[in-house]
């Protein structure tokens, strides 16, 4: 097991390097740079070329690509993301609060999705082809059909019209005022969590149905076990694996992918920062964000791999 974990852990490094090369090149293939983005005058007029060259020199954009890359890599190796090309502030400072917000939102939304998906999926499977099954199906497909930002707008309007109340619109970190923080984040978390529960609910249902047809479930029933025990001990542990994959990949995606929902709820999360970074051609910031999200993704994947091995003993010995 220890060897397995080490092997999976070491595989992360080359992947991250690949991501670094790719994002570095991709950003520079896009026309324009941060200097042009900043000094683009009204009506498309440029400032003087000299000024722009000076600016580029200050930011190190005049150096050859390989040099820029190695400088960046050297920084990364020291966990130093550098400074934002647009604001000039250290990137760690720029990201810190937004990362906290996005991580918390992703965690809350995933928790809600999981809490919806697993019980509903199991329920639909054991009540297959009854009204319960159909109700769950309608509920989850409705979730899939409604974009979460639209659901978010409906929520805000509903609260405003019915309760004459608006959730707080300014972000308060959890450690400053948990109550204020939750009052703001619970709504987007619900909207997003509901939407992302749909796929996992369907997956839970079909995986459960498949497992319930297995011979070992019949064996468990022949032993006279309670239905609850058959479901929780014998079926769930086998059926949960594909659901786990989906939930964790969604979770990793939610960290940086909630651009529109963040807009609706006036949240300054990583999604918004991403869009701004790209629009401003803020190479250093965008690169840092991509590396952050990629690391997060790989970490989640790693944890899922370990969880797989823990849940299914057959994997451990491969």
């Amino acid at each position: 097991m220890a060897f397995y974990i080490l092997k999976r852990l070491l595989a992360i490094i080359p992947t991250l390097f690949g991501v670094a090369v790719l994002i570095f090149l991709l950003l520079r293939v896009v026309p324009g740079d941060v200097v042009e983005a900043r000094y683009m005058g009204e009506g498309g007029q440029f400032q003087s070329q000299e000024l722009m060259q000076l600016e580029r020199k200050k930011l190190g954009l005049d150096q050859p690509l390989w040099k820029q890359f190695t400088t960046w890599m050297a920084g990364l190796a020291r966990l130093d993301f550098g400074i934002s090309m647009w604001t000039g502030a250290p990137i760690t400072e720029e990201i810190k609060l937004r990362f906290a917000l996005s991580l918390q939102l992703a965690l809350m939304a995933s928790t809600i999705a999981t809490l919806l998906a697993i019980p509903l999926g199991i329920l639909a499977a054991i009540k297959q082809d009854t009204w319960v099954d159909y109700a769950v199906r309608v509920f989850s497909i409705a979730g899939l059909a409604m974009p979460s930002f639209w659901l978010g707008i409906l929520m805000i309007l509903g609260m405003l019209i019915i309760f004459k109340w608006l959730p707080p619109m300014v972000f308060t970190p959890l450690w400053v005022n948990p109550w204020e923080n939750l009052a703001q984040l619970i709504w987007p978390a619900l909207a997003v969590g509901y939407r992302y529960s749909a796929v996992s609910t369907r997956m839970m249902r079909s995986a459960m149905l498949e497992v319930l047809r297995e011979d070992y479930i019949r064996t468990a029933r022949a032993k006279g076990l309670w239905l609850k025990l058959i479901l929780s001990r014998h079926a769930l542990k086998n059926a949960i694996l594909p659901v786990l994959t989906i939930i964790s990949l969604e979770f990793a995606f939610l960290l940086g992918g909630l651009v529109v929902t963040e807009q609706v709820f006036n949240l300054n999360g990583l999604g918004m920062l991403f869009v701004e970074g790209i629009a401003r051609r803020d190479y250093t910031l965008t690169q840092a964000l991509v590396m952050l999200v990629a690391t997060f993704f790989l970490t989640v994947n790693f944890v899922v791999d370990i969880a797989y091995a823990w849940l299914d003993p057959r994997i451990r010995y491969r």
Partner: peptide, 11 residues
């Protein structure tokens, strides 16, 4: 049961 390979729970 007939199938000892599938009648025991693998996990």
């Amino acid at each position: 049961f007939q199938e000892p390979m599938t009648s025991l729970n693998p996990v």
